[in-house]
């Protein structure tokens, strides 16, 4: 039996909205540690790793490990039927072929349940080694989303270059070119607005903007985003979910021929 109750049910809707454009079908792994997902997009260029710890839920019970294969798009459609302030409970039997989502309105006057059929999904899991990255940038998530969107008007790829002076996002295209440089700055009163650059050595890598724009769909989940890069390694774009876990996206770099 798997049962998980989340007072802030809207959190799961935001998570689904940040994954469904990248991956169609995926397995949610339920265990005593929590609720997790690892999935690659169909072209194997990007990977999502999402983890919600069991202690972040208001109630969490998972008697045995369970893998729930779902269409992320269909799950997102169901979660759209949840009120913004509803409490969400997910339930699944150990050998069952469906998962139930129960939505309770804050005043308990409306209770609904939606059942989603599960699917058998063969998913390829990759081992992601712990890495000390050459550079890590923490910045406002909305600022990162804006830069990716703005640069997409000019080009298809972005060169992200971290130096001690800041992080520079550059693109070129048929109509011209664009650069945005963000400098580190602290803000004691508004920590969500600060930019922190932790650099062991300068690093510059090129990525497809299309994927970064998909990652930015996670912006409503966190005020800050953490971008970690090392030479010739996939970038990690991580959004921390307060008191619960994170959603991290990995994107393979473009390789110069």
């Amino acid at each position: 039996m798997f049962e998980a109750r989340l007072t802030q049910g809207v959190l799961l809707r935001k998570l689904l909205d940040s994954m469904k454009d990248l991956v169609q079908d995926a397995n949610f792994d339920c265990s005593s540690t929590g609720f997790a997902l690892q999935a690659m997009d169909s072209s194997h260029v990007s990977l999502i790793h999402m983890q919600l710890r069991s202690d972040g839920f208001d109630h969490f019970r998972c008697d045995r490990n369970l893998s729930m294969g779902v269409s992320l798009n269909n799950m997102a459609k169901i979660l759209k039927c949840m009120g913004n302030d509803d409490v969400l409970t997910m339930k699944a039997e150990d050998q069952g072929d469906s998962v139930t989502f129960m939505f309770e309105s804050a005043n308990q006057e409306r209770i609904s349940d939606f059942e989603l059929k599960l699917m058998d999904i063969d998913s390829e899991q990759l081992g992601i080694p712990d890495t000390d990255y050459s550079a890590t940038v923490k910045m406002p998530s909305a600022e990162f989303a804006r830069i990716c969107k703005d640069l997409s008007t000019i080009g298809d790829t972005v060169l992200i270059a971290v130096t001690k002076d800041g992080v520079r996002f550059s693109t070129t295209g048929d109509i011209g070119s664009a650069n945005v440089t963000v400098r580190s700055h602290s803000n004691v009163d508004k920590p969500e607005e600060q930019v922190v650059i932790d650099m062991q050595e300068p690093v510059a890598l090129t990525f497809a903007l299309r994927y970064l724009n998909s990652f930015a769909k996670a912006t409503p989940l966190s005020n800050q985003v953490m971008i970690s890069m090392s030479k010739e390694l996939p970038v990690v774009v991580q959004y921390r979910i307060e008191d619960m876990g994170h959603i991290s996206y990995y994107l393979a770099p473009k390789i110069e021929d």
Partner: peptide, 14 residues
């Protein structure tokens, strides 16, 4: 010219 890398080139199977 650049080509898009694939994740399997960087990460191995579990």
């Amino acid at each position: 010219k650049s080509t898009q890398g694939r994740l399997e080139s960087f990460f191995g199977p579990v």
